[in-house]
Simulated scan of single mutants.
Amino acid sequence: MTGLHVLVTQPWDDYALIDSGGGRKLERYGDLRFIRPEAQAMWQPAAADWQADGEFVGGSDEEGGGRWNLDPRVPARWPVARGPVRFYASNTPFRHLGFFPDMGGQWDWMRQQVAGRRGMRVLNMFGYTGVGSLIAAEAGAEVTHVDASKKAVAAARENATLSGLGVAPVRWLIDDALKFMRREVRRGSKYHGILLDPPKYGRGPDGEIWQLERDLPELVQLARQLLADDAAFLVLTVYAIRLSALALDALMAEVLGDLGGVITSGDMAVREEARGLLLPTAIFSRWQPA
């Protein structure tokens, strides 16, 4: 490893980190503005008075708790886009808005790896509402999208229809991550690209317990076995602040070291519009052939 890297998501037409500080952040989703807690915004905000259409208050962590205080004009959901892919934003009980905008940099990089390659098969684990799956499908990949939540997969299918990708070659599966990947290994399945975006904690459709620190090593080992000989990438993103990008890098190097290629690890961040500050949001590690 030659040092930690920072993958920055810049503001785009339908999303911006407008300002941050004092343990909060002000963001724009389409034409609507929202305030959310942000522990890593330790500095003072650029503006003293934030005007927003809603704020998430209360709660102690990213796993839940708290509530939204919303202006009555805020709809239940509204369409936004990242390039040609369209999807719905909504104010969820878990303080986020139905997708993770700091993944923008990863989506763009993944699309570059997919575009122009024929017969590309991509696996998106913990695929949530499907933005990463749709970006890969729009670029020409055949995608397998897996999430344990029936509600999340239903939202992903709605996003596919909204994007005009309702008949794209995407398999939408509701399954436990480790059980699915173990079966795929036994079947001899192979993928040219794999996106892993595991939560800190989670439950499978039959009550299976996912714990990041316990289960992440097996997840990466299974992903290694599912990579095709001519694979193009494996991306791992983690939102658990207790972990370090150095730890992800060491794990990826141990499991994928026999492949050669390049492993890049570091922080994911969003650039603030007000002053250009970088707000860190997650850590990542990704492999690609040399």
Results as ranks from 00 to 15, higher is better:
V8F: 04
Q51S: 09
T2S: 15
L248T: 09
V238S: 05
A269R: 05
A81Q: 15
S163T: 10
E27H: 07
E272Y: 03
G59Q: 07
K200I: 09
T237A: 13
R183K: 11
M125N: 02
S189G: 04
P217Q: 00
I241L: 08
D147S: 11
V143P: 02
K179N: 12
A39W: 00
E184H: 11
R95N: 08
P72F: 01
A76H: 02
V185D: 05
R111F: 00
A154P: 12
V57I: 13
I135V: 15
L243F: 01
A245W: 01
P84V: 06
A46C: 12
M252Y: 04
F99T: 03
E38R: 03
R73T: 15
E62W: 04
S189H: 07
T161G: 01
E63F: 07
M103A: 06
Y128P: 03
L173G: 06
P205K: 04
R286Q: 08
M252E: 02
S20M: 10
L251H: 12
L227C: 09
S149I: 14
T237R: 01
P72H: 03
A48M: 06
G23A: 05
R121A: 14
A177Q: 04
G164Y: 03
A269T: 07
G130N: 06
G22R: 02
A168Y: 02
F94W: 10
T9N: 08
D19F: 04
G257P: 07
